[in-house]
């Protein structure tokens, strides 16, 4: 992988993250907000995978000692990390959608700004 490729991937990740953040902050529909957050998480995953392909800086470390297959290990580490991100993303969406449905049952609107019960 080349320098340019890495920078391209990181820039794409930054863009994905920024757009996701925009969606999370500006969308009114709760489902859309949740999906926008997924974009942010995916951007993080992409970053790790790209960076660990390129820079296994932790290949030697006083605390962890030398590692076998340093380069492959680092790449696998990055992908494992992203797997965890994916799993967490799924859990967040599940609970988020459940909450939206529960709120909708009492007050039929999926829009966050209309969820404003005051006594």
């Amino acid at each position: 992988m080349t320098d340019g490729m890495l920078v391209g991937l990181l820039l794409f990740g930054a863009l994905l993250f920024a757009l996701g953040l925009y969606g999370a902050l500006a969308q009114r529909n709760a489902v859309r907000v949740l999906l926008a957050v997924e974009l942010m998480l995916l951007a993080g995953g992409l970053n790790v995978v790209a960076l660990t392909r390129f820079l296994p800086a932790g290949a030697e470390n006083r605390r962890l000692g030398p590692l076998p297959l340093a380069g492959d290990y680092a790449a696998a580490l990055g992908q494992t990390t992203t797997l965890f991100f994916l799993a967490v993303a799924a859990a967040e969406v599940a609970i988020g959608l459940a909450a939206v449905i529960a709120a909708y049952r009492l007050r039929p609107t999926p829009n966050v700004d209309e969820m404003d019960e005051r006594e």
């Binding site: 953040l21 957050v37 998480l41 970053n47 960076l51 800086a57 990390t81």
Partner: peptide, 29 residues
């Protein structure tokens, strides 16, 4: 709902930071 949405946004921000830290240092320790 509000808690989830804010929390998810915060998680997104956290993960993005985490991705750079893990990616650049190459370790999760």
């Amino acid at each position: 709902v509000k808690y989830v949405l804010t929390g998810a946004t915060a998680t997104g921000v956290f993960v993005f930071g985490l991705s750079y830290l893990i990616g650049l240092t190459g370790t999760t320790d």
